[in-house]
């Protein structure tokens, strides 16, 4: 199982210097892992936000900064149970990206499924590559 080695990348990382402003909520913040793909029409971003439901996530695009934030509450309520062994921490997510491509803001789509956020950012018409026809004289 050579691909298992990939799992190393899945280790949760604390959101570090990218958090420019202080938050009002206390607790840990993690930086979600993302995949970003591009084709001629869209930029598509996938972010792993385990523990966050669709109502917990906020996506904003302000100027050219795309921000992803998610609030996560612990899956097991403390009471009869004690955390006896831990390999991951539970906390909120925060990450922002600078989008250099002009985006059609009205058509941005975001949805959550099984802890994965998928954002489709459609490019503006003028940003799309255009084939220029060469005319013979």
């Amino acid at each position: 199982m050579a691909e298992v080695e990939k799992s190393r990348e899945v280790k949760k990382q604390k959101a570090g210097g990218s958090v420019a402003t202080e938050r009002t909520r206390t607790g840990r913040i993690y930086m979600p892992n993302v995949d970003i793909s591009e084709d001629k029409d869209n930029l598509t971003l996938y972010a792993d936000l385990p523990g966050a439901g669709d109502e917990d996530v906020s996506v904003t695009l302000e100027n050219d900064v795309l921000t992803i934030e998610a609030k996560v509450s612990p899956p097991v309520k403390a009471g009869d149970h004690r955390l006896t062994y831990a390999e991951y921490g539970v906390g909120d997510y925060f990450r922002s990206f600078t989008i250099t491509e002009p985006i059609d803001r009205d058509r941005i789509e975001a949805r959550m499924k099984d802890g994965v956020l998928r954002i489709v950012l459609p490019k503006k018409e003028e940003a799309k590559p255009k084939q220029i026809k060469i005319q013979a004289e």
Binding site: S7, V76, D80, H81, E87
Partner: peptide
């Protein structure tokens, strides 16, 4: 070495709850 998927184990009197992050 980080194991995948990561697990947390919660122990109680009558049962054990294991949670694991495997999004998607």
């Amino acid at each position: 070495a980080v194991k995948y998927p990561p697990v947390n184990i919660f122990t109680g009197e009558d049962n054990v709850i294991i949670t694991s992050e495997i999004p998607g």
